[in-house]
Amino acid sequence: MFWTSYLLAVLAIALAWPVPIMLSRAQWPARAPFTAMILWQTIALAGGLSMIGAMLVYGLEPAGENLIAGVRAVAGMVLFNAPTTVLGFWHIFALSAAALLTVHLLFTLLLTYLRIQRQRGRHRELLDLLAKPTADGSATMVINHDSPVAYCLPGGARSVTVLSDGLMSALEPDELRAVLRHENAHLSQRHHLLLWAFAAWRQALPWLPTTRLAQDAVNSLIEMLADDVALKTESKASLIKAIAIVASAPERAKAAARFAQSGPDAQERTDTLSPAVGYPASPSLELMQASDSARTTASRVSRLLSPQEPLAPVTTGAVLLLCGMLLAVPTALLIVPGLLG
């Protein structure tokens, strides 16, 4: 049982640091966004599982032959005051850390969900007062604003896609359709669930590089997935033009700059068009995030302009197999000894 905890620890460290860095630099995700998305989810899930598992197995080692026996023995100590002499300081430390990490992860997930729901609710409230539903009665609203803006606000049956007047006047009907298809793809593919999970993952472990890399990668992958859906019905030229017009619109810059705070980093903010007013963030961090989102738009356009072959089925299969292994290995390491014993 001892070697199990080392194996899990090695896996946890690999998934926390080198693997996500390699994946974030890889070029192939643009060719297979769906597969890449599954791989990122697997890395996060298997990473968390092996992190907790490693500590759990280490801490339970003196208490029982295997995980199940160990859990039973420790439950006896906690619930029925059985003697705890078998557990040394580090074992208790590891067990407490495993328990704390589990609770921390679950609570952050819950709190992030509540925060997002509250912000969406507030946003929706204002939208209902400020924006007008389009005539055809679909879940599309138009808001009176000059910047070309399009976004969707998820909310189950009350999900809504919002377009601004500025967008409607800047785009031709075919380009507008491409934007709507793109936004609807976000909603129908439930991308908000991915955004939620990875936002919570980052919130819970902000010091871990993998959480930021994962969130950035997921942000850009969902855009690629939505672009691919839009391309099924709309022409590539319409989509590229829509992206270029919206991204380069001067009104957009003005709207963002209007809120830029004056201060030592005001110039930087105007340059990057990322005001982020009222949110405590160091300027350097802010700049980094801005360049990350910028990479998203740039990689989206270049991906559309010079399309690459989709990943070969064999390679895709290999990646999916790897995903299966990554999830199966920590689970097996935790459970199988107990089943055999």
Binding site: R120, Y151, L153, H182, H186, R252, Q289, A294, T296, T297
Partner: peptide, 8 residues
């Protein structure tokens, strides 16, 4: 929310 275009 999911924007059509992020920061540029």
């Amino acid at each position: 929310l999911a924007r059509f275009i992020g920061s540029v």
